[in-house]
């Protein structure tokens, strides 16, 4: 299996699409993190009412990576959609083995990039906040940092699994990108839709990077479990489609 993962890693680094998408993850995360810190500092300096009432420096450090997550989702989609199945299945005819190797390679490639982005984005936000910045060692922050790495990597695997299910790049991108940017936020307008929205993968997963529990949201463990269910369903669905597919 290690040989197969290594082969998948060669594939990931020898075409432009996934490589560019993955490189954008730290760029966007750290860039947005810096801007977020600067604007937060200005708002605090001027006692602006524009600042959200629940603002904390600790939580603000996680805003950047949630934008970087968009690039990470694109990476997960392209890692699957940009790999022609013909040669892949000639080399690895066992479809479950191929699927597992592909997803493992996606995780191996994404994990260090995500870990770097999460930590540096938080750090840069705190620095940009200046006197209002807090240490990364503050209570709840290290756990949220680890949770953020888990959340982002899971969303990447979810994207890869969905792409295998959809057999193209368009559908998973058209579903996931709007969902994580506006979709589940819009659903919070009414109380009943809010309850449903809590179970969507991005809302449930976002519990993992919450420094403090929020009222009306799922708890940490439940949020993580709901996210894990989504990922498992996408991976299993992708395999089911792959198994039945003629190339």
């Amino acid at each position: 299996m290690i040989d197969l993962v290594r082969a998948e890693l060669v594939k990931l680094r020898t075409v432009r699409g996934p490589l560019v998408a993955l490189a954008l993850v730290p760029v966007v995360s750290v860039g947005v993190g810096a801007l977020n810190g600067l604007s937060g500092r200005q708002a605090l300096d001027s006692h602006s009412s524009m600042l959200r009432p629940d603002f904390t420096a600790q939580q603000a450090g996680f805003d950047g990576v949630q934008y970087g997550m968009l690039a990470l989702i694109v990476f997960g989609v392209l890692a699957v959609s940009g790999d022609p199945l013909g040669p892949a299945l000639l080399a690895v005819p066992g479809r479950a083995r191929f699927h597992a190797a592909k997803l493992l390679a996606v995780v191996v490639a994404a994990l260090p990039v995500v870990a770097f982005s999460v930590v540096v984005s938080d750090l840069v936000t705190q620095v940009a906040l200046g006197p209002y910045g807090k240490s990364l060692g503050e209570s709840g922050v290290p756990r949220a940092l680890a949770g953020a790495v888990l959340f982002l990597t899971s969303m990447c695997v979810l994207a890869a699994g969905l792409t295998m299910m959809a057999k193209n790049a368009l559908v998973p991108l058209a579903v996931l990108l709007p969902l994580v940017t506006v979709g589940s936020q819009l659903l919070t307008i009414s109380e009943s839709s809010r309850r449903v929205a809590r179970l969507l993968p991005d809302r449930a997963g976002a519990r993992l990077l919450a420094v403090r529990p929020e009222h009306g949201e799922l708890g940490l463990a439940l949020g993580g479990a709901v996210l894990a269910l989504w990922v498992a369903a996408a991976v299993a669905g992708g395999l089911a489609v792959l198994r039945r597919r003629d190339v």
Binding site: V10, V15, D83, P87, L90
Partner: peptide
């Protein structure tokens, strides 16, 4: 060993890289 139209390589990859990942997968 097989040559098939449906097993054509990714057009954005170099010929060397295509053979390299195939080689890696077979040790």
């Amino acid at each position: 060993g097989a040559l098939l139209e449906t097993a054509a390589p990714h057009r954005g990859r170099s010929g060397y890289a295509h053979l390299l990942w195939l080689a890696r997968s077979q040790r």
